[in-house]
């Protein structure tokens, strides 16, 4: 059981990276982004491209930080994946959502457009890479460490948790310390007043997409390191990240973080009683439960 909780924390940190971006987009851009899971997939595959094609092509040496399963190539691929998806998210806003906003389309139409975008991204990945399951580094033995309380954990998983926490701290500092970060919080608080104050809300929206896309990409890469890559991986994360977002109250970044851990732990612990394929249904049931008893989430006001 303790082991499952530990695995849940690892999975939860990946869910949290998706949920934080989702919750920010939800609050600041103002709609439910159904393409957020595909940002995760996109990140994972961009990193795959960099690790297996781009860097070998320029002759970048293969290395491995034993006992981790990856090396310098991944260290380079990771930020590239985040940046590419961040740019993709901004581009999507400019060519799609911005046009719809300009037409005064409601949030539901934007959500529908994002559903379309999610299929477009997924299909593009399927066209390029096909539908196989892929490892960043196939055929590698990945032994687990023995921790106290008979917990077995792979070094990669410890890295995943640390990387996620590192990114969250970075985001926290950005929001608390920088002018743009404060302006983002101000816009999330009260968009009309932000406009009156002279904050250029379109710029804030672009930043929001960049951060949301980047974090989602990071989550996707980490999942790829932990398990494997598949074009449907992001879609399978969609329900868990929405559940985490709602659990932590829409718009609340720290709520999304906690929601991510709760959902991740619940999903892993459920495998003690249910077939692992039901993980997604577990996240869904928790979400329905919250909607019934506290739809505003744990941090929401009445």
């Amino acid at each position: 059981m303790i082991e499952l909780i530990v695995y849940g924390i690892v999975l939860g940190s990946i869910i949290a990276l998706g949920a934080i971006g989702l919750t920010m987009v939800y609050r600041i851009v103002g709609f439910a982004n159904f393409a957020h899971g595909e940002f995760m997939t996109g990140g994972a595959y961009v990193a795959l491209f960099v690790v297996t094609i781009l860097l070998p092509w320029i002759g970048f040496p293969d290395s491995r930080f034993v006992p981790l399963s990856f090396g310098w190539r991944m260290v380079i691929a990771f930020p590239i994946a985040m940046a590419v998806v961040a740019i993709l998210a901004i581009a999507l806003d400019k060519i799609l959502y911005k046009k719809l906003r300009a037409k005064k389309s409601g949030p539901v139409i934007l959500a529908m457009a994002s559903l379309g975008a999610s299929f477009i991204i997924r299909m593009t990945i399927l066209i390029i890479w096909g539908s196989d399951y892929i490892f960043y580094r196939p055929g590698l033995m990945r032994p687990a460490l023995d921790l106290p309380l008979s917990v077995k954990i792979r070094p990669d998983q410890i890295f995943i948790f640390c990387a996620a926490i590192f990114l969250v701290i970075l985001l926290h500092l950005f929001l608390k310390r920088t002018k743009m970060g404060k302006a983002m919080r101000a816009t999330a608080d009260n968009t009309d007043l932000a406009l009156v104050t002279g904050i250029d809300t379109e710029r804030i929206i672009a930043w929001t997409w960049a951060i949301g896309g980047g974090l989602a990409a990071a989550g996707g890469v980490l999942y790829g390191i932990d398990v494997q890559l598949h074009p449907g991986m992001g879609w399978n994360f969609l329900i868990p990240i929405f559940a985490a977002t709602i659990l932590g109250s829409i718009g609340n970044i720290y709520g999304a973080l906690i929601g991510g851990f709760v959902i991740g732990i619940a999903q892993q612990v459920s495998t003690a009683f249910l077939a692992p394929t039901y993980k997604l249904a577990v996240a869904f049931m928790i979400m329905i439960l919250i909607l019934l008893i506290r739809p505003q989430g744990i941090f929401g006001k009445e």
Binding site: R185, D192, L193, A194, G198
Partner: peptide
């Protein structure tokens, strides 16, 4: 709704000087 409720007083003033 003329303040940013989750920002501190100092941050509210900083936002006033955003431009």
């Amino acid at each position: 709704n003329n303040v940013f409720p989750s920002l501190t007083i100092q941050e509210n003033l900083e936002m006033g000087a955003f431009i």
